[in-house]
Design a protein around this nucleic acid. Structure first.
Length: 465
DNA sequence: GCATGATCATGC
DNA sequence: GCATGATCATGC
């Protein structure tokens, strides 16, 4: 192996060789003549890259792919956001498979996960539907080493996964258990299982993976984007905490403010409070968490956690339904699976709900909780998504236009599902997105922006509790 | 009083 | 100018 086009003991050499991939496809840089054309499913991208570009033999040992340089080669897919033009992770980044029997014998720092993945050479290509893997265009290449503060969260995640396995609960693992490092299912189907220690129940095969939110941060870092739009939940004094649980750290921050009014809280935090600002409660929540009202919480963004601040009346009914960002009609009709749809991705995230409740003493901070939408409710949301998508595909949007110019639509109403409905989400009726199919009744080719909303009654009955 | 449609205030 | 989080107005 003396004639490799790079020096395999030098990170610098490996990276500069990898950088030559940017804006190219595999077909342009390797000899593809002896590849079996029938085996080119999307999972082959990484294997072909490793075997035909880096000339490495495929193996599954616990050493990194470039052991002398301490680098593990990983490839991932990005997508371009139509509305913003930015690159985002198409999905989680799947790392090494979890051997349940081995895991329970390991420590984090010397265990196979960290030994293999401490430093990674990442190659991201742009995902294109119905495109041969050989023609995917590489967009970003870079080295990733976990920052110390991220490693603390990841070690905490790793320990949680390990302790579940130690307790004979490998079959109950779920990605929602953890923050940055997940245990995602891996295998052809649900019957891909493995044995686990301390239980006879076969457990689904799983791999360590990085959450999409975390991958987005990696993408920003290796693209050289460092903006000030993120603030940290965990600051220096907390870094030495033995129990590094970002959820607990977040919940603890609310403790001094229970039973206080928004004005009280703003005063205690020494921050301004504009009663005219419609997002004043959301701003206050961020200040409680220790970041500026202008910033996003970095740890939550990495862990795919969404904050929702809700005011409820004395009967626990929210004053308003909860909105999500407006969807683009042209994008939703192209979503061919619920699992990969934007709405499902929003609902699979973990939520931090912050409730302010109306009492005799006024509006008071009342309850704060982390929450995930149960599977059955996401199936319910799926039917709302399916109906919405079909109406747009059929150009069946406006039902009638009243004398007042209010337009009644066919979109799913609150009464049709206990979970979610569709409503306008725009500045005016003139605030529009193009329609893929003109509306049958009005013939318009664009329509007021709409979004999915969670029903106020669903918040009351299934989340506030 | 509630469901649905329309619109607003802010910050970037 | 627009995304976000939120609130208002109308009609039944």
């Amino acid at each position: 192996m003396t004639d490799l086009p790079y020096n395999q003991s030098s990170q610098e050499s490996i990276v500069s060789y990898a950088m030559q991939l940017v804006d190219k496809s595999l077909r342009e840089v390797i000899d593809v003549s002896d590849l079996d054309q029938n085996s080119l499913n999307k999972g082959r991208f990484g294997q072909i890259l490793e075997e035909y570009y880096f000339y490495k033999e495929l193996d599954s040992n616990s050493q990194p792919d470039f052991p002398e340089a301490g680098l593990e080669l990983k490839s991932g897919a990005v997508k371009k956001l139509i509305r913003k033009g930015e690159l985002r992770a198409k999905e989680r980044l799947v790392l090494s498979i979890i051997d349940y029997n081995d895991l329970v014998t390991q420590n984090f720092k010397t265990g196979s996960f960290y030994m293999k993945n401490a430093e990674m050479l990442l190659v991201f290509h742009l995902h294109e539907k119905n495109t041969n893997v050989l023609d995917y265009i590489v967009k970003l290449v870079g080295i990733w080493a976990f920052p110390a503060e991220d490693l603390k969260v990841i070690e905490h995640d790793w320990q949680l996964i390990k302790s579940k396995v130690e307790n004979g609960e490998a079959h109950t693992l779920s990605e929602g258990d953890t923050f940055y490092l997940g245990a995602c299912t891996k295998g052809a189907n649900a019957s891909s299982t493995r044995s686990q220690p301390n239980s006879n129940i076969p457990a689904k095969q799983r791999a360590f993976s990085l959450k999409p939110g975390y991958v987005n941060h990696i993408l920003a870092k290796i693209s050289g984007i460092t903006d000030g739009s993120f603030g940290k939940l965990v600051t220096a004094p907390d870094l030495d905490l033995a129990e590094y649980d970002i959820e607990q750290i977040a919940l603890d921050k609310f403790k001094p403010y229970y039973g206080k009014t928004p004005e009280d809280i703003a005063h205690m935090l020494n921050v301004g409070y504009n009663p005219e600002a419609k997002h004043r409660f959301a701003m206050l929540t961020k200040e409680i968490l220790g970041v500026s009202s202008k910033q996003e919480v970095e740890e939550f963004s990495k862990a795919d956690i969404t904050i929702k601040t809700v005011r409820i009346d004395d009967k626990n009914l929210p004053y308003e339904n909860i909105s999500f960002p407006a969807f683009a009609y042209e994008e939703i009709v192209k979503e061919d699976s619920w699992e990969l749809s934007e709405f499902n991705e929003l609902l699979e995230k973990r939520f931090l709900f912050v409730f302010f409740k109306t009492t005799k003493q006024g509006l008071l901070l009342n309850k704060v909780l982390f929450w995930n939408m149960p599977y059955a409710d996401r199936q319910e949301a799926k039917s709302v998504w399916l109906k919405t998508k079909q109406l747009i595909i059929d150009g069946n949007i406006v039902k009638k236009v009243e004398a007042s110019n209010i337009r009644r639509t066919y979109f799913p109403k609150k009464s049709e599902s206990k979970v979610a409905h569709i409503r306008p989400h725009a500045t005016t009726t003139q605030d529009i997105y193009p329609l893929p199919v003109p509306d049958k009744l009005t013939k318009v080719t664009s329509y007021t922006k709409h979004s999915f909303w969670l029903n106020d009654t669903y918040i009351r009955d299934s989340i506030y509790l």
